[in-house]
Design a protein around this nucleic acid. Structure first.
Length: 256
DNA sequence: TCTTGCTCCCCCTTTACGTCA
DNA sequence: TCTGACGTAAAGGGGGAGCAA
């Protein structure tokens, strides 16, 4: 486990932190005032293609860490509307370059251009176009201007259309990743809740059995109500053996 | 060196269209 | 045939980065 972040706020029970290469991204904690028993927090959305790691912290001295590998993601055209970006803003360089080619090779038919005056008409990409775009996206999720230009030419589309497709594709990938993370954390939350219950039960059982059988100096320490220090159950007030040096015994003031 | 304006690009949100149950 | 849900292309706005004047 290379990186993990632990929340410093007091927990009653469990905490779970998911980080990507040191950047804490998600955490779950069981807090005193959490009505559900757990809080779900998301601290940033900057996790981009980094290796996730997971830290599981349990109450008291019980600690565990878990490493989890999460998977990474894993028509026809219509003419632009009258007030498209090309019209209302300064034309982009690549759009200007592609205009001439577009006039020749655009899939927009003359008939469609006639209807261009009204509402926009949405057409679908062909299977070949979608397939090639997907292939390029697998290679890299962003395109530099040259790649965009070349791909647009290859697909017989405007560079702006290729750009928009990549933007939408990135958005879909991100959404899917978020959904996967959410489901994963739900399962983690359930598992941790169950583990917390089990450990609490185990702790209760241990306390009971120690009260009945263990020597006083071996009894599980408890917090002193007056000074807030941890003490044992012995009549001396100290959970440590009487033979221990007084200066070495933080519970000595309970001896009186 | 700093500022300003321009351009490009990305992200996010919204809109609108096509498809399908 | 109608309708609502869903997927997705595209628009539009905000903001950051790079660059030249």
């Amino acid at each position: 486990m290379a990186n993990h972040d632990r929340d410093d706020t007091p927990h009653t029970g469990l905490s779970l932190t998911l980080s990507y290469d040191g950047r804490s991204d998600l955490s779950i904690g069981s807090r005193p005032h959490s009505s559900s028993g757990f809080e779900l927090q998301r601290s940033s959305s900057t996790a981009k293609a980094l290796e996730p790691s997971l830290t599981l912290a349990l109450p008291g001295d019980v600690c565990a860490s878990v490493e989890v590998e999460m998977g990474r993601d894993a028509g026809s055209w219509h003419s632009p509307p009258p007030q498209s970006r090309h019209h209302c803003k300064i034309k982009r360089e690549d759009d200007v370059r592609s205009e001439e080619a577009e006039k020749v090779s655009s899939r927009i038919s003359d008939e469609e251009e006639e209807e261009d005056s009204g509402a926009r008409k949405k057409l679908r990409l062909t299977k070949e176009q979608s397939s090639l775009l997907e292939d390029k996206f697998k290679e890299h999720s962003t395109l530099n201007p040259k790649q965009k230009q070349a791909l647009a030419k290859q697909l017989n589309l405007r560079p702006r259309q290729v750009e928009v497709w990549f933007q939408n594709r990135r958005a879909r990938t991100k959404l899917k990743k978020t959904e996967v993370e959410l489901e994963f954390l739900r399962r983690c939350c359930e598992t941790l809740t169950e583990e917390k219950r089990r450990l609490q039960k185990e702790l209760q059982d241990l306390e009971k059995s120690h009260k009945l059988s263990a020597p006083r100096h071996m009894q599980i320490p408890a917090t002193c109500p007056s000074c807030k220090k941890v003490i044992g159950g012995a009549e001396t007030g100290s959970p440590l053996p009487a033979s221990w040096p007084r200066f070495f015994n933080p519970f000595a003031h309970h001896a009186a």
